Each structure stands twice: as structure tokens, then as C-alpha cells.
Amino acid sequence: MDKENVKNQVLKAYKFRHACKKFDGTKKISDDDFNYILEVGKLSPSSFGFIPWKFLIIQNNEIREKISPVSWGAKLKLPDASHFIVILSRKTPDLIYNSKYISHIMEDVQKLPQNIINQRKKGYENFQKNDFKLLESDRAMFDWGCKQTYIALGNMMTAAAFIGIDSCPIEGFNREKVEKILEKEGLLDREKFGVSCMAAFGYRQKEPRPKTRPDLKDLVQWVR
């Protein structure tokens, strides 16, 4: 595939993608297609490669119904979306520079030699303490993790659009109430994880309105 064709395919996918308001409940995403979307999420970049996210896929209708009253942005999606994801972000106990989780990622996942691990831990500690001042509060650390989950979310929505699958990112929910529901269901350890955002995937019930965006010149400033 030549470069111009690739560029056209990418733009076509972005023009296809929209925040789907209502899904066709009769259409389901195949396991193969959804695993492809999840694989793209897994491969998405994260700060230091420490992967702060977890994808909680809610296919249980009873749990969806419990979430609905406290998730105004998801009400129209929860009944009919083929797949519904609650994206979690890790919190301070896992993301702090000297946590067991960070050591696990470097030792067991990245398989780095010990001298490199020691160097990276020092750099990560300095980054958290001085560069981004993430240790000033647990909320600062959580928000930093949440920002990274949006990279995975965006990539998954784009990957879905490439194969004709619709999606909708969702922030319209009461975080505290959703977390309590998930905790009660045994799906969330609130000491280590919090809810970052949600996303619904499936197939559109009707065609959306044309996209509206400002001109590129209004969004870009070149510094030469």
C-alpha cells in the first residue's frame, strides 16, 4: 500500500468515526474484531511504558443497569452497545516510583537488566518529585494516570473506525457512585484503581450529522 493510499485510509477512518449516540442493539462485534481493538489498546504508548490502565469490559446486563442511573452520558448506550468498557487508571500505590507494580513491569514485562532498572527508577523518581510534582497529592497521581488512558482510548476508537465499528467516549458519570457500584460487585479495588472514563462500541443506528471542526489555521501555530 503506497503512502498516499495509507493517508487516505486514515482520514477516511477519522471521518467515519463519531461519538455514536445510539447503537443498533441487534448487531454484535465479533470476538476477533473486539480482540483486535483491545490489542491496539494494549499496544498504546504510556509514560515510561508503565501502562497505568485496565480495561473492564461490562457485558453483564444487570451491572449495566446498575451503572446507568449514575452515568447520564451512557444512558442511551448501555442498553444497546455491543461492548461497554470502563477504563480504569492505577493510583499512587501502583504508580509511585518504588512500588511493586513498577518493579514488576521493568523486571517481568520489559525484562530490563538490573543496572538499567536502577537508572530508570532514579529518573522516574525525579520525574515524579520534581518535573511533574506528582507526589504532592494522590489526586495529582491519579489524574496523570487518567490522562494516559485517553491515549489508549483514542487509539481503540480509531482502530474500530478502520473496520467500520462505531464508538463513543464517555465522561458523563458520577465517578464516586460508579466506583462504589463496581466495588460492591467485586470488580474494583479502590485503593489501587479508579474510574478514568468509559467507552461504548457497536454499530450505529443511524447516520450521524456531518463533522464540524474549525479550520486547521485556527488550531495550529508554527514556530520556525
Rank of each mutant, 00 (worst) to 15 (best):
M1G: 09
D2R: 13
N5A: 14
V6D: 08
N8W: 13
Q9E: 15
V10S: 07
L11D: 11
Y14V: 14
Y14P: 11
R17T: 03
H18L: 02
C20H: 05
K22D: 07
G25H: 01
K27R: 06
D32T: 15
D33V: 01
D33F: 02
D33N: 07
I37N: 05
G41Q: 03
S44A: 15
S44D: 09
S46H: 04
S46M: 03
S47A: 15
S47L: 07
F48W: 10
G49Y: 00
G49T: 00
F50V: 13
P52N: 03
K54Y: 15
I57H: 00
I57Q: 02
I58D: 04
Q59R: 13
N61H: 13
N61Y: 12
E62L: 10
I63H: 07
I67G: 03
P69N: 06
W72M: 13
W72T: 14
W72L: 13
A74P: 11
K77A: 11
L78G: 05
S82V: 09
S82Q: 11
I85A: 10
I85P: 04
I87W: 06
I87G: 06
I87Y: 06
R90G: 11
K91Q: 14
K91T: 08
D94K: 15
L95E: 00
N98P: 03
S99Q: 01
S103N: 15
H104Q: 10
I105N: 09
M106L: 13
V109Q: 12
Q110W: 12
P113S: 04
I116L: 12
I116S: 12
I117H: 12
K122M: 11
Y124H: 12
E125F: 11
E125S: 14
F127G: 09
Q128I: 02
K129A: 05
F132H: 14
F132W: 14
L134V: 02
L135K: 05
D138A: 09
A140Q: 13
M141F: 07
D143S: 06
W144F: 04
K147R: 15
K147H: 14
Q148F: 06
I151K: 06
I151C: 07
I151R: 06
M157E: 11
T158F: 14
A161N: 04
I163E: 07
S167N: 04
P169W: 01
I170D: 04
F173G: 07
R175Y: 05
E176C: 09
E176W: 09
K180F: 12
K180Q: 13
I181N: 05
I181W: 04
I181L: 04
G186D: 10
L188Y: 09
L188D: 10
D189F: 08
R190L: 08
R190K: 12
V195H: 08
A199F: 01
A200P: 02
G202Q: 01
G202H: 00
R204H: 01
K211P: 02
T212C: 02
D215C: 00
K217D: 00
V220R: 01
R224V: 00
